[in-house]
Design a protein around this nucleic acid. Structure first.
Length: 265
DNA sequence: ATAAAGTCCTGAAAGC
DNA sequence: TGCTTTCAGGACTTTA
């Protein structure tokens, strides 16, 4: 689930639920989601602290505390952040529960434990962000062209690469390339400026609508809305969609309308 | 049993 | 040739 729009939604959860609230207790229900931090240290450094303004870069969520360390969350493929009343039953995949004052708790829920939670000082936060490209929401057209220039692999691989642009995942990339009418396997270097401009523009539109929805919306008028169909067809032209593997991921695209590498149409 | 919306590591290819 | 960058594939993990 978690790509940029989902993580942005989790940030809102935090702002509504955790902002300025004090952590009164921490329960680590499955230490398998702790990354580079022990349960003991997590408890020691967070208990009694207030949560500051959460911020996001790409798919990473950073929650500063007034104790100096920052709680850093990554949600892998199945993670989420929930704001619950304490009487709501704990679910099997609630891996960490932060009890807050004022009768709220914050639950890091994750089925597969592909990523997790860490505790970082300023230096470590910088190191994480330094490894990422600019956040996809902030990339303007000329920066976008610069970031992609000279890449030799498939355009989808470049868009998926977090060190190039941070925040785009498998669904967003398929959606963006479909909207831009570009075959995901196209070598990036074969795209002319107009095609790149179209991809950038599609990225902006897809991101804006997705952030508003809190996820990549599975609307029938979007490619994403067809992913789970047995015989998916293109919402735009009706042709059968193709499903192959690009950059190691399932990739859905329309062989009829995703054909342009240049600025035609 | 296969595959899933993510990332890290490895070894290899491509580029200068 | 040699060094660096870029790329593809597998591992990690759990469940439908």
């Amino acid at each position: 689930m978690p790509e940029l729009p989902d993580v942005e939604a989790f940030r809102q959860v935090l702002m509504n639920c955790g902002r300025r609230r004090r952590v009164t207790d921490i329960e680590v229900r499955d230490a398998g989601v702790l990354r580079g931090v022990t349960e003991k240290r997590l408890r020691r450094e967070l208990t009694g602290r207030r949560l500051g303004k959460a911020w996001r870069h790409g798919k990473w969520l950073f929650v500063p505390t007034d104790g100096g360390s920052t709680l850093v969350c990554h949600f892998g493929m199945t993670g989420s952040l929930r704001c619950c009343r304490p009487d709501e039953p704990i679910e099997p995949h609630d891996r960490i529960v932060l009890t807050l004052d004022e009768a709220r708790d914050l639950r890091y829920r994750d089925q597969r434990k592909l990523q997790g939670v860490r505790l970082a000082d300023e230096y470590t936060v910088d190191r994480i962000v330094d490894g990422l490209g600019p956040d996809a929401l902030t990339v303007d057209r000329s920066e976008f062209q610069d970031l992609l220039s000279g890449r030799r692999g498939a355009v989808k691989s470049a868009l998926m690469d977090q060190s190039v642009i941070a925040g785009l995942g498998n669904l967003l990339c398929d959606e963006i390339l479909w909207r831009a009418r570009v075959d995901p396997r196209t070598p990036t270097r074969d795209l002319d400026r107009t095609a790149l401009r179209r991809i950038h523009s599609a990225m902006g539109r897809v991101l804006t609508a997705s952030v508003r929805a809190g996820r990549v919306p599975p609307r029938r008028s979007w490619l994403t809305g067809r992913r789970d169909d047995g015989e998916p067809s293109c919402p735009r032209c009706g042709a059968s969609l193709r499903s192959t593997r690009v950059a190691g991921r399932r990739t859905l695209w329309c062989p009829r309308c995703q054909t342009s590498t240049t600025g035609d149409r």
